[in-house]
């Protein structure tokens, strides 16, 4: 055993996502990175799915009907939630980058996350009752 185990290494990428021992800004970072990866995946999935449009009315309407089940709707709500969280986290990053609220970044994050929770609830209720 050498002392290399304590050095930075790309193999430690999983520690980015470990919330233990992190504080407010660290949780914001985790949230931002997880939602970034999720949304990037969804972006390309969404583009591929919309390819059904090119195949005409039957294909697309059949596809939409297929997608109208609770599991897909939960997935869609996750995408909406990720978008809201990533967007509002971006607001925190931009504001603090330009020095706004930089000594109050925790309060800024909690305020933005409160907005996010309300927005996700509104979307969730709408999506499941529509």
């Amino acid at each position: 055993m050498d002392n290399k185990h304590n050095l930075p290494s790309p193999a430690k990428f999983w520690t980015w996502f470990n919330p233990i021992g992190r504080q407010t800004g660290g949780w914001a970072f985790i949230l931002n990175r997880v939602t970034a990866l999720g949304l990037t995946f969804y972006l390309f999935l969404h583009l591929v799915m919309l390819g059904q449009l090119a195949q005409g009315p039957e294909a697309y309407d059949g596809f939409v009907a297929l997608m109208h089940n609770p599991i897909i709707i939960i997935g869609e709500l996750l995408v909406v939630a990720a978008g809201i969280l990533h967007g509002l986290n971006g607001v925190r990053i931009i504001l603090t980058t330009f020095g706004v609220s930089i000594t109050r970044q925790k309060q800024l994050f909690y305020a933005l996350m409160a907005v996010a929770v309300v927005a996700i609830l509104v979307f969730g209720i709408r999506m499941f009752t529509a």
Binding site: T24, T96, Q105
Partner: peptide
């Protein structure tokens, strides 16, 4: 922008603010 540096800094350097 994880602000962990500022959270643990014991000496009012506030590294995150200085990075910005």
């Amino acid at each position: 922008s994880a602000f962990e540096c500022t959270a643990v800094c014991p000496s009012f350097v506030d590294p995150a603010r200085r990075i910005m």
